[in-house]
């Protein structure tokens, strides 16, 4: 499909309108690592175009560089994503070694991966390493969840939540964090996070007796598979126009790229996972490879922006940690 024209002003113009241009980092406290594009699912909203057929996975060489970086640099958290990061053969080793270095680890889990061959011990492994699980669950009903993530996903996800609850995840007093991540089932914005979290809690407890800690809402990004959906369904212009129209300077101030770095499976550096998929490496004089890591240059770097950045700044904002300007 030919690249679509963008019907809205460049994102930098929106930043200029509120005095935030150029957008700069304020530190590098979170190291987000994308271990590869292989996934056991092929979700409609996926900005990574991940799926079972993808072969891009982090090599041993790049893995060693990540471990070396973790050993010598201080990060508040290691945030693991993919694809399904758990499918990487060295996932457990990376988690164990990061935890032994005193790093907190977040795992962005699609839930159904827990039932893949060889994953039987994953919940117990998570418990041993106190991994915080950020689990994708678009909605508390089968219809919406399966529409986004494929038929049968909701039932499997509920079983995975039951399993995690049985291991103490999401249960009061255990300190084992189980957070759900919601994204809308189409070309519309997420509901307000706090209100939706309350609905999820009531419905999931009432109908399925499953529990979680927090719900984070994420806006669907006009990138990769979701962008194709927008184009095919004739929603792209209206969606981008609404995203741009909902630009919120407070959300722009709090975007996640200002305090994180995203490492790709092949060892390049990006401002975020979305820029990774858009092929926008760190720039403006900051190094774009793990080999050339420089905290000094990266923690005050100018962020690379594009039209999809409106996805993080619309309304109450959106990030891997949910709303940024509730």
């Amino acid at each position: 499909m030919a690249p679509a024209q963008n019907p809205v002003l460049p994102f930098d113009d929106a930043l200029k309108s509120c005095g935030l241009f150029p957008l700069t980092a304020e530190g590098v406290s979170i190291l987000q690592v994308n271990l590869g594009r292989r996934c056991n699912q092929s979700c409609e909203h996926c900005h990574v175009d991940a799926g079972p057929g993808r072969r891009e996975m982090m090599s041993d060489g790049v893995m060693e560089k990540v471990l070396s970086l973790l050993a010598r640099e201080n990060f508040s958290a290691l945030d693991l994503t993919g694809g399904a990061p758990e499918l990487h053969p060295r996932f457990r080793e990376l988690v164990s070694r990061a935890v032994s270095m005193g790093r907190s680890v977040f795992d962005r889990c699609n839930l159904t991966v827990l039932f893949e061959p060889g994953m039987e011990d994953l919940p117990a492994f998570f418990v041993r390493h106190r991994v915080a699980v950020y689990a994708s669950l678009p909605y508390y009903r089968r219809e919406e969840t399966d529409a986004v993530r494929g038929r049968g996903t909701f039932d499997k996800s509920v079983r995975a939540l039951e399993l995690l609850n049985a291991h103490g995840y999401g249960m009061e007093g255990t300190g084992l964090e189980l957070h759900l991540v919601h994204n809308p089932a189409g070309a519309f914005f997420p509901a307000p996070q706090a209100a939706l979290e309350a609905q999820f809690k009531v419905e999931l407890e009432k109908k399925h007796r499953v529990f979680f800690n927090r719900l984070f809402t994420i806006t669907n990004m006009p990138i990769a598979r979701f962008d194709s959906f927008l184009q095919k369904s004739g929603n792209r212009e209206a969606y981008l126009t609404r995203l741009a129209g909902a630009f919120n300077p407070a959300a722009a101030k709090g975007v996640m790229c200002r305090n994180m770095i995203s490492v790709s499976w092949d060892g390049h550096l990006y401002d975020c996972d979305f820029n990774q998929m858009a092929g926008l490496k760190v720039n403006h004089g900051a190094p774009d490879r793990l080999d050339d890591w420089s905290r000094k240059l990266l923690e005050r770097r100018e962020i690379m922006t594009a039209i999809h950045c409106y996805g993080c700044t619309a309304g109450s904002g959106s990030s891997c940690g949910g709303e940024t300007a509730p």
Binding site: R141, F189, A191, L196, Q199
Partner: peptide, 12 residues
Amino acid sequence: TRASLEKGSNRE
């Protein structure tokens, strides 16, 4: 329709 979806309601 859009507002209801964006406030968290479902089709049911």
